[in-house]
């Protein structure tokens, strides 16, 4: 290994991201939301494992889980995870399309941004609407 200290050690380099410096815009809000939903979904993955463990544990642990799921807090969490999942899915596909080299120009970027928001809201409504229809 080298003995010399790298230039970055003596002179701090600018570190990304500088959220407080950028001018706020739609595409940026979508990008931040992608990250926020990703982190929130990590908690959802933990919840999925707890759910599976509760099923494996037997009817009693499953019923504790079900009781929490249908409570107000439980429903809000599940609704949040549903929206986050669909949002992260739709915007994730948008990212994969970018990775393929398509949709980088400003106009397309804005159109796909609106599409992502509309699609994730609609899909969330569809999933919950279908679940309520099945119930009644």
């Amino acid at each position: 290994m080298a003995e010399a200290t790298p230039p970055s050690a003596s002179r701090p380099r600018p570190l990304s991201p500088h959220l407080q410096i950028y001018r706020w815009q739609w595409t940026m809000a979508l990008s931040i939301t992608h990250r926020a939903t990703g982190v929130f979904l990590a908690a959802g993955a933990l919840y999925l494992v707890i759910w599976l463990a509760a099923i494996a544990g037997g009817p009693d642990s499953f019923s504790v889980m079900t009781h929490f799921n249908i409570s107000i807090v439980g429903r809000l969490l599940l609704l949040g995870w549903t929206f986050s999942l669909f949002y992260h899915l739709c915007n994730g596909i948008r990212h994969l399309v970018w990775d393929a080299g398509w949709g980088f120009d400003l106009k397309t970027g804005h159109i796909t941004a609106v599409l992502v928001i509309v699609a994730s809201v609609l899909l969330t409504a569809l999933a919950w609407g279908a679940a309520y229809l099945l119930r009644h």
Binding site: T82, L85, L89, G92, I93, H95, L96, A131, L134, R135
Partner: peptide, 21 residues
Amino acid sequence: TALALVPLVIWFVVSLVCLST
């Protein structure tokens, strides 16, 4: 992993909706 999760997540949500009752 993102690509693999696209069909898996859709299947998972549809299944949960069907299992809700």
